[in-house]
Structure formats: structure tokens, C-alpha cells
Computed example of a mutant assay.
Amino acid sequence: MAAPDTATDAADAGLRADMIAIDANAAPWDAAPSAAPLGWVTRWAIGWSRARRWEFWPAWLYYGPIVLWILVLGLRHRSATLFTAANPALDNGGVVGERKHQGLMPLQRNAPDLVACFTLLPAEPGTAREQQALAFAARDDIGFPLVLKPDVGQRGRGVYIARDAAAVSQYLSRHDGAVIAQRHVGGEEFGVFIAQMPGQRLDVISIVHKTFPSVTGDGRRSLRELILAGERTRLIAAILLERWASQLSQVPADGQRIKLVEIGSHCRGSLFLDATAHATPALVDSLMRLTAAVPGYRFGRIDLRAPSLEHLQRGEGLQVLELNGVTAESAHIYHPGTPLVEGYRAMFRQWRLAFSIGAASRSLGAPVTSAFELLRLFIADLRRGRQWF
């Protein structure tokens, strides 16, 4: 059977240590056998199921009305890119090409208890940054596993969990851009979207609970069969069969649980659940302290972990992984079964707030990025994305 499973401390400590006879250090760039192709009936059935769920629609199809709404807002505000002023703390408001360390560094400096400790590995040749990463991992409060991710990246691109020094070395040898090395944090993962007018108390407009699909063995079926039998895992079979290609023929023991996804990104296979109703005044108080620690951060999704949902509600034990900007999504809309109209309503509201906060920030001196510069940045980001898995 298949079931989504949240990232508990116990599960994260092992990170798939309980799974079959698996090479725990297998990396995305390692050569792996291709999974046997699915039959046309299975492909058609999965494709039809995905087509009926708009959360799986291609971006060009879903985002058409949203782009039109952005153009309307631009006309109303007489500035097509006014939203880029919403987050003065981030490059271009965090629309594209922003550097993750811009938000994380002031947070680590001013409110270190709220962030998963990290270090920035510069983009430079040689072994110096590998030594820096290993020295960071050697700290008593860090250790392995260690999360590695590009300083500039989106949608889980290039995020990798390194379990030993060799994995760190392999990752850095393949990617010469600036990299964030961050302590791996256990617990439940959430994306909390905030909107804050300058000088006012912030609003939480979205909370998504990110869960990680798994399968549980029955001692009879192979991993491939379990994936294709699961209600959720079947829908993301293309991702999972490629990721687990070298282990698909193995038969998990009866009751053996296998967490199939480790990265909290919808496009990487995570299941997103709507947790917006769990916003509380105590959570907002903690988030106010966070935004005070990062001057100019006013609008975007805060990806974080907390020991439990109850801790999140109390605003306790929060560990920020990333501060995302304007083009982050109110990701609760990807909760299975959310009506399409509700998804559009949330995104229309998000962009209306982006323009309003951008206008308020511009009046305080925040810069607005031109449309031509944004286009250049988007093209550069497409090129940059080709080097990452």
C-alpha cells in the first residue's frame, strides 16, 4: 500500500536507512539503468488521472489567466513590474535569480534560533570550499547528513542531501556556482506565505504542509509494483521510476516502509496539504520577529521545519530553510481536490498583494526592476537551470 509520510525526526535520522539493500549514497548524477517503459494502457491511465487534477497541469496551461491578471494589475498601477519592489531584501524582489543567502544571512546573524544553520560556499575553483564544507559538517551541532543547494535556484533544483564527505566532494566538483551548505533538520516541513505592508503586522495568507510519499512492502510485490499500485505514487510514477531505477525489481519485506521523496518540492514528488487553518497569533508573533531580523523581507513563502504541527501553531522550534520571494506560490492550492477556481482565487489575491506591497515599498525608496531586465534574468535562469538535476 502507499501512504504519504511526514518527515519525522526518527525517519530523517536514518534517511532511508531502513530501505531494501540500497546504496544510500547514490547520487542524481550517477549513471543508473533506465526503468522498463510502462505499457500504453498504464501510461494512458496515469495521463488521464493527471489531466483530471489541475495540480499536474503544465505551467503554460495553468498560468495563462494569472499572467493576464498580472498585466491588468500592471496597467492599474501604471507599472508592469511594480511587484519587484515588494521585497527590498532580495534581488528583484525575489522574482528570479535571487540569492538564497540574502535572506538567510541576516536571519542567522539577528535571530539564529529561527534558521537552520548554514554556510555559503563561494563560486571558486580548487578545494577551498570543499574544505570549508567539511569543516562546517565537522561542527558538533551540524554533522551529516548535510543539505547542499545552489545559492541561486528554484523549485528544488540542485538540492541534494549529502550523507558523507565523499558525497560533498562529488557534488562540489560538478557544480562550480555558489552553494549553500545547511544543517539537515528533522521534523515536519511547511511553507508559510506571508504578506506585510511596511510598518504593519503581517498576514499569513497560506500554509502548506509538505509530506513525502512512501510505500510499505508486503513481501510479495516489487518496488516498481508498489509504486504503480499506490494512489498517489502512481501519479508521480515518472519521477519515482527514474529516481529508483536500480532498485525497482527488489521486493521490500512485509511492513518495510520506503520513503520515496526527500525534497519538499511539488515538482520533485512531495504531496502538499492545506494547513492554512492552523495559522495562529503565536505563529504570527514568531514570524514578526523573523521579518524584523531580515529588514525589507515583506512578501513570500518561508520554507521551514518544526518538530510538529502543534509547535508550528505555537510558533516554537521553527527552523527556516529558505526565504522565497514574489514568485513563490501560495502552495496550499496544490492540496489534492482543491477546485481550480479556488487555486486561481488564491493566486489572484497573492499577485494583488504583491503589487500593493510593491507600491508601498516603492514609496519608501525600494527600486523597481525593469521588464527588459527581468526578461534577461529569466533567460539567464533558464540557462543556469540546465546544469542542475
Rank of each mutant, 00 (worst) to 15 (best):
P58E: 01
Y62I: 00
P37I: 06
L75E: 12
F56N: 10
V72Q: 11
L73Q: 07
V41Q: 14
Y62D: 05
R78L: 03
W69P: 01
L61Q: 03
G74K: 11
P37W: 12
W69E: 00
A36Q: 13
R53D: 15
R53C: 09
R53P: 04
I46L: 04
G47Y: 03
G74E: 07
L71K: 10
W44R: 15
Y62A: 07
W60P: 00
R52D: 08
R50M: 07
P65A: 06
R50H: 08
S49A: 15
W48R: 15
I70S: 00
F56I: 03
V72M: 13
H77Y: 15
L68M: 04
W60V: 12
V41N: 10
P37L: 02
R52T: 14
L38P: 06
A51R: 14
A59W: 02
A59V: 13
W40E: 11
L71W: 10
V67Q: 08
G47L: 00
P37Y: 08
P65T: 04
R52S: 15
W44F: 14
H77T: 01
A35I: 12
R50P: 04
I66R: 09
A36Y: 08
I70N: 05
R52F: 03
F56M: 11
G74A: 02
R76L: 14
A35Q: 11
L38I: 02
W48V: 09
L75K: 14
E55Q: 15
L71Q: 12
G39I: 05
A51T: 06
A35P: 14
A35T: 05
S49H: 13
T42P: 07
R43A: 06
L61E: 06
E55H: 08
L71G: 07
V72I: 15
S49R: 15
A36K: 10
A45I: 09
W69M: 11
W60H: 14
P65H: 10
W44C: 00
R43Y: 11
P37E: 01
W54H: 09
L68S: 09
V72N: 11
G39Y: 01
P58A: 01
P37Q: 08
R76Y: 12
I46C: 07
I46Y: 09
L71R: 12
R78V: 01
R43G: 00
A45E: 06
R78C: 00
A35M: 03
W44A: 15
A59G: 13
W44D: 01
L61C: 01
L71M: 06
G74H: 10
L38W: 13
I46A: 09
G39M: 08
A35Y: 02
A35G: 09
T42M: 12
W40T: 03
W69S: 11
L73F: 03
W69I: 13
Y63M: 13
V41K: 14
W48C: 01
W57H: 04
W54F: 09
L61N: 00
R43Q: 14
G74C: 00
G47D: 09
A59M: 03
G74L: 00
L38M: 08
